[in-house]
C-alpha cells in the first residue's frame, strides 16, 4: 500500500513537471507578449516595457525563465505582472472566496443527485423516470449562463432582490444576523445555478449505475433470502452502485479552480476562476502559469485520492 502510494506520487510529480513545462511552452509560443499588457496605455513607454521585461527575466532563454518561475514559486516570491504583488497570497485570498461556493455547490449536487437517480432507476420507465430524464437532458444542454441570467431576471423582477456579488450593497453596518443571512442568500443563488448541471449529470450516472447493479445475480440472491425491498436496494444494490462514485470525489477537486469561471463571472464572485480569467485578460503570465499548475496538481492529487479511496471501499481492488 505505502509502496504504491510512494511510487504513484513520484510518477505524478514527474507528470506535474511535464505539465508545467508544456504550459510554459504554450504561453511562450503564443504570439501575444506580456509587454503588450496594456498597449493602449499611453503611459507605457518603451523604457517601462524594457524595465518590465528585465525584472521578469523575459529576455532570458526559455529554460532560464522556466527555472526562475519554478524557484520563485517554491520560495513564494513569484510576482504578478499586473501589479507586482506576490501571486500566492492573492490566490489564497481568492481561494477563501471560492471555497464556500465550491463546497455548497458540491453539497447540493451530491445530496440532490442520489435520491433523484436511485428513484428513477427503481421506477424505470415510469412517468417520474421519463420526466427526470428529460429535465436532466435539458439542464445538460442549456448554456449555464443563459439559465443564470433568466433566473436573475426572474428574481430581480419578482422579488426586487439583488443577487450579484458577495453581499448586498449598503448592508455593511447592518446587524450581524442580517449580514449573515445576506451572505447566505448571495451564496445560495450562484451555488444552485452552478449545481444544476452537476445534478443533471450525476443523477443520470447514478441512475445508470443503479440499473446496472439492480439486475445482478447477487441482488436476486438477496431477494431469495427474504430480505425486504429496502434492504435489497440499500443494503445490497446501492453498496455496489456506489463504488464508482467514491472515485468521483477525487475528480471534483480541480473544479475548485477552473470549474467556476462562468458562474463567478456572472455573479461577480471574486473567486479563483475569476482570478484566472482576469489574469488571462491581462496576460499576467506568472498568475496564469501558477493557477494552471495548481489545477493540474489538484487533478493529479484527486486521481491519487480516487485510487486510494477505491481500494478502501472495494475489497476486490488491491493497490500494487
Amino acid at each position: 500500500m505505502w509502496r504504491f502510494v510512494l511510487r504513484t506520487v513520484l510518477q505524478r510529480l514527474l507528470l506535474l513537471l511535464l505539465i508545467s513545462i508544456i504550459s510554459h511552452l504554450v504561453i511562450h509560443l503564443a504570439p501575444g507578449q506580456p509587454s503588450e499588457v496594456d498597449p493602449m496605455n499611453p503611459m507605457m513607454k518603451a523604457v517601462d516595457i524594457a524595465r518590465i521585461r528585465a525584472s521578469f527575466h523575459l529576455d532570458d532563454p526559455f529554460y532560464l525563465q522556466y527555472l526562475h518561475w519554478m524557484r520563485d514559486l517554491v520560495f513564494g516570491d513569484l510576482k504578478s505582472f499586473r501589479d507586482g504583488l506576490p501571486v500566492l497570497p492573492k490566490i489564497w485570498d481568492r481561494f477563501l472566496n471560492s471555497a464556500p461556493l465550491f463546497l455548497l455547490t458540491t453539497l447540493i449536487v451530491w445530496t440532490a443527485s442520489f435520491p433523484t437517480g436511485i428513484h428513477a432507476a427503481l421506477r424505470r420507465g415510469s412517468l417520474y423516470d421519463r420526466s427526470t430524464t428529460l429535465v436532466a437532458y435539458t439542464l445538460i444542454s442549456v448554456p449555464g449562463f443563459f439559465l443564470s441570467y433568466l433566473l436573475i431576471l426572474f428574481v430581480v423582477r419578482t422579488f426586487h432582490l439583488p443577487v450579484i456579488g458577495q453581499h448586498t450593497f449598503g448592508t455593511e453596518h447592518a446587524p450581524l444576523i442580517v449580514r449573515f443571512m445576506d451572505r447566505i442568500w448571495h451564496l445560495a443563488i450562484p451555488s444552485i445555478m452552478a449545481a444544476l448541471t452537476g445534478i443533471a449529470v450525476l443523477s443520470r450516472y447514478v441512475r445508470a449505475q443503479m440499473l446496472e447493479v439492480i439486475d445482478q445475480d447477487y441482488v436476486r440472491t438477496a431477494r431469495a433470502k427474504g430480505l425486504d425491498e429496502d434492504h435489497v436496494v440499500y443494503g445490497h444494490a446501492l453498496r455496489n452502485a456506489l463504488l464508482p462514485f467514491v472515485t468521483m470525489f477525487g475528480f471534483l477537486l480541480p473544479g475548485l479552480i477552473s470549474g467556476s469561471v462562468i458562474f463567478e463571472q456572472i455573479f461577480a464572485w471574486p473567486g479563483l476562476g475569476l482570478l484566472g480569467y482576469e489574469a488571462i485578460l491581462a496576460r499576467d503570465f506568472p498568475m496564469i502559469l501558477t493557477l494552471n499548475f495548481m489545477a493540474a496538481a489538484l487533478t493529479l492529487f484527486g486521481i491519487l485520492l480516487s485510487d486510494i479511496l477505491y481500494a478502501v471501499v472495494d475489497p476486490r481492488i488491491r493497490l500494487e
Binding site: L18, I22, V26, P31, P254, G276, I280, I288, N292
Partner: peptide
C-alpha cells in the same frame, strides 16, 4: 493522454484563445 487530461481544459482553452489571434 494522462498529461492532456490533467490540463484544466476550459482554462487552457481560455488561455490559448486569449493569446492566439
Amino acid at each position: 493522454t494522462d498529461v492532456a487530461v490533467c490540463f484544466p481544459t476550459f482554462f487552457l482553452i481560455l488561455t490559448v484563445v486569449a493569446l492566439l489571434p
